[in-house]
């Protein structure tokens, strides 16, 4: 016993070193699994405040980019306006059914509402990347909401404080997103993951090889999960091949959103999420 104590005293720095490294390893594992170590992330108050202050300065240099992305969004919204459509058929009634605005009563429900937010901290260099947004619990942001931008999807909210929230970026090795590729109007769905180290690309699997996909085909969100609304752009098919013996393509998808410069995002709040999840859990 005495020699054991002497040994510990003699080697105390080595033992302390090993204990501290173990703590660090546990922190890494824990954070990747539970994603709620809010205290140690930049959504905590102090780090959040510092980043917001820095953000004020950075915004001035990025005004032209912001204006570009805002006008792009305005363009998309204008395209959806009823007044921006020319009704080309004599049967006006048929057309009205397509435009939700003209339908009254309970026939159209609001499925998603959006909370706009600014990215105040961003990383793309790690294996699991996170963003910090300047919107939190007080603004209605909750865990596991989806985050989208003008050009595509961004990530999933993992932790929320009163004024800030952290988002697990789609550039994370343990995040899966389901996506659709449309070939002649038929959707082929597959699963997108980020396996590379390159922030411009994601990998897509499980698209059957009989689908005649081409380079440049759009990949859109499928709306299967409760996180992202259907039909949001993710990226475009960059390269693809069928591994020998496989029934599925291996596709590399070029992301539409430049994840390094992303500034303005929208947190998507699925109003029918609980109903869907409750129904789905009844089958298990």
């Amino acid at each position: 016993m005495r020699s054991l104590i002497l040994l510990i005293l003699k080697r105390s720095s080595l033992i302390l070193f090993l204990i501290m490294e173990l703590i660090c390893a546990l922190l890494v594992i824990n954070y990747n699994k539970k994603q709620n170590e809010i205290f140690l992330t930049s959504s905590n108050f102090f780090a959040g405040k510092l980043y917001s202050t820095l953000n004020v300065a950075k915004e001035y240099f990025e005004l032209s980019d912001v204006a570009d992305s805002l006008s792009y969004e305005n363009e998309m919204l204008r395209n959806q306006l009823a007044s921006s459509r020319y009704i080309n058929i004599p049967f006006q009634d048929t057309m009205r059914r397509v435009l939700p605005d003209s339908l009254g009563g309970d026939s159209v429900l609001v499925h998603f509402t959006y909370i706009h937010a600014t990215v105040i901290n961003n990383s793309v260099a790690s294996s699991n990347n996170y963003l910090t947004l300047n919107r939190g619990r007080l603004h209605g942001v909750e865990r596991s909401m989806g985050v989208v931008s003008a050009h595509g999807i961004v990530g999933i909210v993992t932790a929320v404080s009163n004024h800030f929230s952290t988002v697990k970026s789609i550039l994370s090795r343990d995040l899966k997103v389901s996506g659709n590729i449309f070939v002649d109007g038929t959707p082929f769905s597959g699963s997108l993951t980020w396996q590379s180290h390159d922030h411009r690309f994601m990998n897509m699997d499980y698209v059957p090889k009989y689908a005649k996909i081409e380079q440049g085909d759009s990949v859109l969100t499928s709306g299967f999960s409760t996180v992202f609304p259907e039909g949001y752009s993710i990226g475009k098919v960059d390269t693809f091949f069928v591994p020998p013996g496989s029934a599925y393509y291996k596709i590399r998808v070029r992301l539409e959103e430049d994840m390094t410069t992303i500034r303005r995002v929208y947190v998507a709040n699925n109003l029918l999420k609980e109903e869907q999840l409750k129904l789905e859990s009844e089958n298990e």
């Binding site: 105390s12 660090c24 824990n30 992330t41 980043y51 952290t166």
Partner: peptide, 30 residues
């Protein structure tokens, strides 16, 4: 021993800002 603990301190401080609990800390402890 103090070197190791100070390493952990500066590492965890940076981890808060890099959103990577334990990663900078592990390197700094080393």
């Amino acid at each position: 021993q103090v070197m190791i603990l100070l390493g952990f301190l500066i590492g965890i401080t940076l981890d808060i800002f890099y959103d990577s609990p334990g990663v900078h800390a592990g390197a700094s402890v080393f």
